[in-house]
Every structure is written in structure tokens, then in C-alpha cells.
């Protein structure tokens, strides 16, 4: 039996399909998103954590907040600088960042993530949902 040709053709088709997302998007890199800060956020000057950290780790922080708030019943978070915040996505985060579309969504869309936090914690609910 000599199925070499068939096997090689199959492999080529497979490789082409698997790498499709890469060559399809080649040279079309979307520019990194710019987020808009509300006046309230600007006035506050700093977030719960330093900018770099909150940018990369806000989901971990929210996860901890959620468990501490819901399960342990403690509601206040005191950061390294000694400043206190109520641990609440609805009432703290979204109070300052009340511009969901121009803030949260900018990066989430860019990174293609769709967290369902905002299904229930509503500030400016997504129009699509």
C-alpha cells in the first residue's frame, strides 16, 4: 500500500486549518485599547491597587473580595497605603468607573474575554444582554 500522497495531503490540509487564525489575522494587529476615566475616577487619582497591579490583577482581587465579602462577611478592604474601600463591585468599582463601555469593555473586548460579572452587577448594563 502506498498512501503517502494521501497522508501528506491530509497533513497539509490539517496544518493549514490549525494555523488558520494566525495567518488570517497576519498584519492586522488591533491597536491596544485606550480606556476612558470618568471625572470621579480622575479625581480619585489612584485605584485600590497601584495602576499596573489593578490592570493585571483586578480579577484576582475581585475573586478574593467576593469570597471575603459573601462568605466571611467582612466588607472593608484596607490597602497597603491604609486607605479603606468597601469590597463591592457594584458599589465601589462601578461607582467610580461608571462608564462600562468606555472602560471595562475596552480591554475586555480587546482581550476577547466576556466575564459574566456584569450580568448581575449592573451599572450600565450591556445593551446586548
Amino acid at each position: 500500500m502506498n498512501d503517502k500522497g494521501k497522508i501528506v495531503t491530509g497533513l497539509v490540509i490539517f496544518a493549514a486549518l490549525v494555523s488558520f487564525p494566525f495567518w488570517y489575522n497576519l498584519g492586522k494587529a488591533a491597536p491596544p485599547p485606550e480606556v476612558v476615566l470618568t471625572d470621579k475616577a480622575k479625581a480619585a487619582k489612584e485605584c485600590v491597587l497601584p495602576k499596573d497591579e489593578i490592570r493585571t490583577e483586578h480579577m484576582q482581587l475581585l475573586d478574593v473580595w467576593r469570597d471575603t465579602q459573601v462568605r466571611d462577611g467582612q466588607t472593608v478592604y484596607i490597602n497597603a497605603k491604609g486607605k479603606s474601600y468597601i469590597m463591592s463591585l457594584s458599589n465601589t468599582c462601578l461607582d467610580c468607573h461608571s462608564n462600562y463601555k468606555d472602560f471595562c469593555d475596552r480591554c475586555h473586548v480587546y482581550a476577547s474575554v466576556d466575564p459574566y460579572c456584569f450580568d448581575c452587577h449592573i451599572d450600565n448594563p450591556k445593551e446586548t444582554k
Binding site: E57, Q74, T75, V76, Y77, N79, A80
Partner: peptide, 11 residues
Amino acid sequence: QAAPEAQVAHQ
């Protein structure tokens, strides 16, 4: 290195 002194409390 990041913010090691965070604490939680009751209101």
C-alpha cells in the same frame, strides 16, 4: 513585591 499589607475588616 506588590502591596503586601492589605487587610480586611468589618465596617
